[in-house]
Amino acid sequence: MTRLAATDLSLDYGGRPIVRDLSLAVPDGRVTVIIGPNACGKSTLLRALARLLAPARGTVTLDGKAIARQPTREVARVLGLLPQTPLAPEGITVADLVARGRSPHQGAFRQWSRADESAVAAALEATGTADLAGLRVEELSGGQRQRAWIAMALAQETPLLLLDEPTTFLDLRHQIEVLALVRRLNRDLGRTVVMVLHDIGLACRYADHLVAMRDGCILAEGTPEAVVTPATIRAVFGLEARVIPDPETGTPLVIPRREP
């Protein structure tokens, strides 16, 4: 089953084609990870899946209907997105930022229901940002800031969550924490997650479904074991590498060959 899908999708920026004839069915209740070289169109694809970019051709469907035709507020109750470099309003506190995640559930006279309150508290708790709640976002370190943004996306409580490189700026421990959190959301709460990751080893550890892109096309998709082979690494990244089982998890681990 798939609630979110792209069919024959072509995307461009100002006439420059970025993604071409791409089809993708996001598996429900799974963690899908997109990998690929810089500038291959991963963020662009994610933006189109979140109706932030109108397709040049093809469609994105949510629950079988074109996402562009659905009221944006209703989509926002089902589908959340954290962009790669979000902007924090000057002077906003972490608590207020996370509370903004409740927007699609709120109205002019429905500003703070009990559900809003508990969702924000849970999001702060889950991301370990509860202690930072009173601080201004500009006072935080890169890693703390990233976790505050993730908390905002969590507070939205959408069954589908798109995350664009949620682990950039994070040290290894915080990367693992964020990915473990994403897995918990998926396993315990059944959230469907699509995220872009840079580290292939971590992508293999945490992905149920792995999508490898190059030049705006999907070259391979499937389980990490099926996708990550020396041949696909060569095709996708132009890199000669060995693939060995991760001694910790058994998932594929990419070891680049030493230069001749």
Partner: peptide, 12 residues
């Protein structure tokens, strides 16, 4: 103020 993408994602 959080940018076009975040605002749209929040249903604005």
């Amino acid at each position: 103020e959080m940018g076009e993408d975040v605002a749209t994602a929040l249903g604005v």
